[in-house]
Structure formats: structure tokens, C-alpha cells
Amino acid sequence: MAFDDPDAIPDDALLVLYANGDAEAARQLTTRLAPRVLAQAARILGDRAEAEDVTQEAMLRLWRIAPDWRQGEARVTTWLYRVTANLCTDRLRRRRGGTRDVNDMPEIADDAPSADQRMQQDARMDALQGALNELPDRQRQAVVLRHIEGLGNPEIAEILEISTEAVESLTARGKRALTRILSGRRDELGYDDD
């Protein structure tokens, strides 16, 4: 099936189309949702290869649940963020005590900046990722969903299965911790004292 305006079709309608055997719907859903899953997983895990595995697994779970999806009951993105958060939590638990290399971070998509700008941007993103990696798992998840993915607190509460107040507390503590950590890395952020 060809879609005249794929963006006009809600995620859950695409999911129903997929469940009914429409291959194009799968492609649309992948294009629309997988980059967000990959971004979330990459920020939480700080590891490119693991983030890709999580993305594939989360999307596989979406394909499997498609026939049972009830339109209008939940948002597909919220469900997918929750699955991704849980998959990331499982992986973080498994590798507890292991080290993470911020150089494994995803490549940054940008509008062709200069080499210097690119290097500085990479350094800032690495610094941010390094700081995120130092946060406790739940704080990191809340901060990523709130401040990088731009979700509202009620949706984050639904994803992490905690209260809205708990989300506010996690994000506030997370931001304070990031400020403290990054204040010591001003040079990596390009804040040269001149």
C-alpha cells in the first residue's frame, strides 16, 4: 500500500495496517520510531552497538504486539519508550561494574558544520554523555526522557511506572548532578577561560 501522506497516519493506525499484512506500514513505523528508540538507548547506555541491539529488540516487540494493539488506549511512542527503558535497565544491570566508553557514542547528524565545529560539538556531546553515565540509572533515564527527548512529566511517569512527583524529583536531582559534573569539564564543553 502506498501512503499519500504517511505523516498524517497515526502510529497506532499504522500498527493496525502492519498487523493486517501491510509491509509499507512497517517501513513507515521504522522510519518514524526507530531513530527515537536508538537515541534514547544510546543516551542511556552510552554504547552504540548495545543501543542498536536494544532498538532492534524493542521494534521486534512492537511487531509482535501489533495484532493485539488496542487503538486509542495507549500511545505507541509511550509504550516503545517504556520497552526501551526496561531493556536498557536490564542491560545496565547485567554489566554493572563494567566500563563504558564515550567514544562508542552514535555519530552526530548535523548540517555539515566545519571540522572545528564538528570536533567541538563531538567533544560537548561526549562530555554530556560522560556526565550522564555517572548518574544513577533511574536519574539518567528521567533526565534523558525529560530534557533530551522532551517528554512531559506525566508521560515519563507512565514510561518509568512511577509517580509524577518522583519524576520531578529524579530530573531535579539529575540536573543538579549534571551541573556539578560538567562544571568540572568546562574545557571539554568549549568554555575556554580566555
Binding site: 502492519y18 499484512g21 509491509a23 512497517a26 517501513r27 521504522t30 522510519t31 526507530a34 531513530p35 527515537r36 536508538l38 537515541a39 544510546a42 552504540r48 543501543a51 542498536e52 532498538t55 532492534q56 521494534m59 521486534l60 511487531w63 509482535r64 501489533a66 552514535p106 555519530e107 552526530i108 547528524a109 548535523d110 560539538q121 556531546m125
Partner: peptide, 21 residues
């Protein structure tokens, strides 16, 4: 600066979709 979806990953995801279907 969200990461681009690598072609290989897109292909794997779509293969899974076809398999499940």
C-alpha cells in the same frame, strides 16, 4: 543531534517485521 538510523539496522528491523508478519 539524534543518531542516524544505520542502513544495516533498518534492514534488520524490517526483516524482523516481515518474519513476524
Amino acid at each position: 543531534a539524534e543518531p542516524d538510523l544505520p542502513d544495516g539496522l533498518t534492514a534488520r528491523i524490517l526483516e524482523d517485521a516481515q518474519m513476524v508478519q
